[in-house]
């Protein structure tokens, strides 16, 4: 069995309101998770379930109230834990006054990639995301899809072992979504580990080895997609997801009421 490269134990994250008397918001509660090398892991949940907060803890943006998390056996609070990961945020924004090439060179410098290697890596990732033609243009002239692809390129510049993607296809057109899906498949074939959140459940079903479903900050289900389908006796992941988060289809009754009205 391959090694665990992402481990979360009893993670709890609370947010305190800045105003006096505001209640404490529990974003993640007692989360345990392990992702193994080479897996494509789907991290699912409705909006506000705690997916992005968990990712923020993994990336050191937010401190956990309790519990611990490790990347490659290094506590996530250590910056070196992020040396072998690539991260694509949900909304990709980069320094608009820089060109794609300059952004990639900047991040390559931070990863201490040897000078001789930098240009080769930049060429490779720009070819992968099909942005070679626009490499010398400033980001402010890019479309949303192109910016998302720059995001993917910067996430891949250090040839990461683990990719953390926060809703990588959100806001993209069908072609853009297909391209991102192809890239994830390609990375899986190269043996990379991908940990990503998405609301596109059809896409998750296609590309993921395992999924975890989060609701109200708690882990509700985890396992292989086929196992979850069997366990919950459903035909697709969307139905499993809706069942797990406790969604009831009231459309028939409301439809009737509308007709009556």
């Amino acid at each position: 069995m391959s090694e665990v490269i992402l481990k979360i134990e009893n993670l709890r994250v609370e947010f305190r309101g800045k105003e006096l008397g505001q209640q404490v918001k529990l974003a993640v509660n007692g989360l345990n998770l392990a992702v193994r090398q080479g897996e494509v892991f789907g991290f699912l949940g409705p909006n506000g379930a705690g997916k992005t907060t968990t990712m923020n803890v993994l990336l050191g943006f937010v401190n956990a109230t309790a519990g611990d998390a490790w990347l490659f056996g290094v506590n996530v609070r250590e910056p070196i834990a992020r040396q072998r990961i690539g991260y694509l945020p949900e909304l990709t924004y980069y320094y608009k006054f820089l060109t794609a090439e300059e952004i990639l060179r900047f991040y390559a410098k931070i990863f201490c990639i040897p000078k001789g290697e930098v240009e080769r890596r930049i060429d490779a990732v720009l070819r992968l995301v099909e942005l070679e033609h626009a490499r010398k243009r400033q980001i402010k002239t890019y479309s949303k899809g192109m910016q998302q692809r720059v995001g993917l390129a910067q996430a891949l510049i250090n040839n990461p072992e683990l990719l953390i993607l926060d809703e990588p296809t959100s806001g993209l057109d069908p072609v853009g979504r297909m391209k991102v899906r192809e890239i994830i498949q390609r990375l899986r074939n190269e043996g990379k580990t991908v940990f990503f959140s998405s609301h596109e459940l059809g896409e998750v079903e296609t590309v993921c080895d395992r999924v975890a479903i989060l609701n109200h900050g708690e882990l509700k289900a985890e396992g292989r997609v086929s196992d979850l389908l069997r366990q919950h006796q459903q035909n697709n992941l969307e139905q499993v997801f809706l069942k797990i988060i406790g969604y009831h289809d009231d459309s028939k009754s409301s439809g009737g009421n509308l007709q009556a009205a």
Binding site: E3, V4, I5, K7, E9, Q37, N63, A64, T65, A66, G67, D68, W70, F72, G73, V74, N75, R77, I80, A81, Q83, R84
Partner: peptide, 14 residues
């Protein structure tokens, strides 16, 4: 957040 040691089965940073 405690500074516990990493779980035994996790792989190490090269």
């Amino acid at each position: 957040m405690t500074t516990a040691n990493p779980p035994a089965e996790t792989c190490r940073l090269p």
